[in-house]
């Protein structure tokens, strides 16, 4: 009788404890949800605000017109072409270097003080304010190497900016590969080079691509370093085309051309007295957000696809 009573009492205590823990679970999940909502709603509010201000400009003319003093007929042509070309240079400068550096640090670098130094530097570089890259680029690329205020300078600057992101992403995804895979490759007689290129790099490509795309999305929205190196504000012609109809069918004159990019065009319109230009700025902002979201979406999709196809 007494034992039964004590068991019952005990049971009640246990039940109370479970209830308490469940309540704590609930409270925490609500806090988590709220935290998520703060981030999500902020972005959503911003986006809805931009769209509701700028929707009148969402048409093809806005993308195919040059800047103009008349807000209604002003467009983004030179800005989005400029952004695209700058991104191209950024991609071709940051990706090979970043991936190679990541592979070196993970696979080849001896573990000594020098590697540690590089590692600390790379991690720190990722946190350097972007304006600092702009100042570096101004003295190094614009004046030091005499590249001028060109698409090449802008692309290289942004390339430097996202280099640490690419390196860190490469290293993280290389680390995720099981040791067994390497050992298996070595066991059948592969050289180190073959192991790295046929297996390690292959299986980590999803993570590396994600890092690259996220880096590119960040570069797209950067304004400060681009202003520092002297992007133009009014430019109503396009750089020379990279592809020509005469041999050798490809030219690099566009690299030395002046340029403007989307965030700078937006910044300029926003600082105008005339409110009609603020509508253009809002539309540009919405466009930048959409492109960034698309890029990040592609990164997630690619990672999912590539992971799905890897079976070990």
């Amino acid at each position: 009788m007494t034992t039964q009573a004590s068991v019952l009492k005990n049971l009640a205590e246990v039940r109370a404890m479970i209830r308490r823990h469940k309540r704590n679970d609930l409270i925490f999940s609500i806090i988590g949800l709220l935290a998520l909502m703060v981030g999500l709603l902020t972005l959503l509010t911003l986006f809805v605000d931009l769209v509701s201000d700028g929707y009148q400009r969402f048409n093809l003319d806005f993308l195919s017109n040059y800047p103009s003093r008349r807000a209604a007929s002003a467009g983004l042509l030179s800005a989005w072409v400029g952004s695209l070309l700058v991104m191209l240079v950024t991609f071709f400068s940051a990706v090979p270097m970043g991936v190679a550096a990541g592979i070196y640090l993970e696979e080849y670098a001896p573990k000594n003080w020098f590697s540690d130094l590089i590692e600390i530097n790379v991690t720190n570089l990722a946190g350097v304010p972007s304006i600092v890259y702009g100042l570096l680029a101004l003295s190094l690329f614009v004046y030091g190497l005499g590249l001028g205020e060109s698409i090449l300078t802008a692309g290289l600057t942004l390339g430097l900016l996202i280099l640490p992101i690419v390196i860190v992403a490469t290293r993280e995804s290389i680390r995720g590969i099981p040791v067994a895979i390497r050992e298996a490759a070595y066991a059948v007689g592969a050289t180190k080079w073959q192991v790295v290129f046929h297996h390690v790099l292959h299986y980590s490509s999803g993570g590396i691509l994600t890092g690259i795309i996220i880096g590119m999305a960040r570069a797209l929205g950067e304004t400060a370093p681009i202003i520092t190196i002297g992007a133009l504000t009014f430019i109503a012609f396009l750089p020379p085309s990279p592809i020509t109809d005469t041999a050798p069918f490809i030219n690099f004159e566009w690299l030395s051309s002046g340029f403007t990019v989307l965030p700078i065009q937006m910044f300029n319109w926003l600082s105008r007295p005339d409110h009609a230009f603020h509508i253009n700025a809002a539309a540009t902002g919405a466009l930048i957000i959409v492109v960034t979201l698309l890029m990040n979406g592609t990164a997630i999709w690619l990672r999912y696809r590539i992971r799905k196809n890897i079976k070990w």
Binding site: V95, H198, L201, H202, I208, I306, N309, K311
Partner: peptide
């Protein structure tokens, strides 16, 4: 075993 995507070639072209 894996996707069609070949990063090795992409990297060579990029380089």
């Amino acid at each position: 075993m894996q996707s069609k995507f070949v990063p090795t070639q992409l990297l060579k072209v990029a380089g």
